[in-house]
Amino acid sequence: MKYFVPKFCPGNEKGLNINQAKTQQKGGTHMLTRLSDINRLFNAMDFFRNRLDSLYSDVDWTYTPGLNWAVEDRFPKTNLYEDGELFEIRAEVPGLGKEDLTVRIQGNYLEISGTRKSNTPEKYSIHRTERDITSFTRSFTLPADVDSEKVKATLENGILIMTLPKSEAVKPRQISIA
């Protein structure tokens, strides 16, 4: 199993509570056997779900699990990392040169904007255009203030990488014990 899936466990608190409540109402023992039938059913479902999970990872076609790909509509997609003294933000900006991008920083406010020139070559007929991003703006509130003087930005293979050192006031400080 790759990730945690909450399971219906016959022995857990919730299961027992249901049992107790039902037996009080009906007062019969046959209800208990029915519940165990349901439990058995859930076990079977868990079994199939596990099998399906492993099947998906074996088959090599597009399968988009997790939350990473749930925000498809935002452009550019970004990652923010925090590493003690600095933040690092990365953004997917395929096809953009450094002259096409503008970055503004003020305190903990960061704005990335840009335009992608149409790259449709002349005298070609168009079959398909999915890469239709023309201009965009995306702004972020960083978890802490950054020193805008020391920000470095590089563009590598269509990914914008910015290192943003935190401003002195919010940097972690080592405390010596007297």
Binding site: P94, T120, G158
Partner: peptide, 28 residues
């Protein structure tokens, strides 16, 4: 193979000489 697979966006153009395929693959 355990990596997630995604479909990249493509543009396809054609003229008399050739077919052109543009694909976004940031970070590759």
């Amino acid at each position: 193979r355990k990596l997630d697979t995604v479909q990249p966006d493509v543009d396809i153009y054609e003229n008399e000489e050739e077919i052109l395929v543009y694909t976004d693959m940031p970070g590759v």
